[in-house]
């Protein structure tokens, strides 16, 4: 997952999955998640934050959380490329715990082990303030594609917008 609107993708996914989500980041990262901002997506009480010292710790915590089955979504912010072994371990853990793992990565640093890779960017249109462009840039088991979506705060879900409608 990369791009400028990756956060809203993650929180939209959390809203869709329901239940507890866990957000793991390295402790040096300065940007703060604002609970007032995410209240549109999920109840901030359902979000747990972990601050890990290094990417190694981030991955270890993510694996533990994915395997436990106590959370439905694990989001980790990564700063370095993810190796094949780590990626595969996370996938197995996610399968065991029946949870979704999402890695927020800098542009062009995806792991080869990833099932799918998305790029998510906000799009400016004169009428709508929530229009996003989701681009599937890697898919192991299907084709790539581009979708335009819009966040509907009332029903707490993303609504698809036809390309012509943008």
């Amino acid at each position: 997952m990369c791009g400028a609107a990756a956060f809203s993708f993650a929180f939209g996914l959390a809203a869709r999955l329901g239940g507890q989500s866990l957000w793991i980041r390295e402790s040096w990262e300065t940007g703060k998640i604002n609970p007032d901002g995410i209240a549109d997506f999920i109840d901030p009480a359902d979000l747990l934050l972990c601050h890990a010292d290094s990417q190694r710790e981030v991955l270890a915590v993510a694996e533990e959380a994915l395997r436990s089955g106590a959370v439905t979504l694990v989001v980790m912010t990564l700063s370095k490329p993810l190796g094949l072994t780590e990626g595969r371990r996370l996938q197995l853990a996610a399968r065991d715990g029946n949870a979704v793992g999402l890695a927020l990565i800098p542009e062009g640093m995806g792991s080869n082990a990833a099932e799918t890779r998305w790029r998510c960017d906000p799009v400016f249109v004169s009428r709508d303030s929530t229009l996003l462009k989701w681009e599937l840039i890697k898919n192991k088991s299907g084709t790539l594609g581009v979708w335009y979506v819009r966040w509907d705060a009332a029903s707490r879900r993303f609504a698809m917008v036809s390309p012509a409608g943008k």
């Binding site: 507890q20 901030p44 009480a45 934050l49 972990c50 270890a60 915590v61 533990e64 106590a70 959370v71």
Partner: peptide
């Protein structure tokens, strides 16, 4: 069941990165 699972997860993560590093938002 779900709550217990979550607390156990917090404990397990806490043994790795310290219990104070797992946080939640309070208004």
């Amino acid at each position: 069941g779900r709550k217990d699972q979550l607390e156990d997860l917090i404990t397990r993560i806490g043994t790795r990165i310290g219990l104070d590093n797992i946080q939640r938002f309070l208004p």
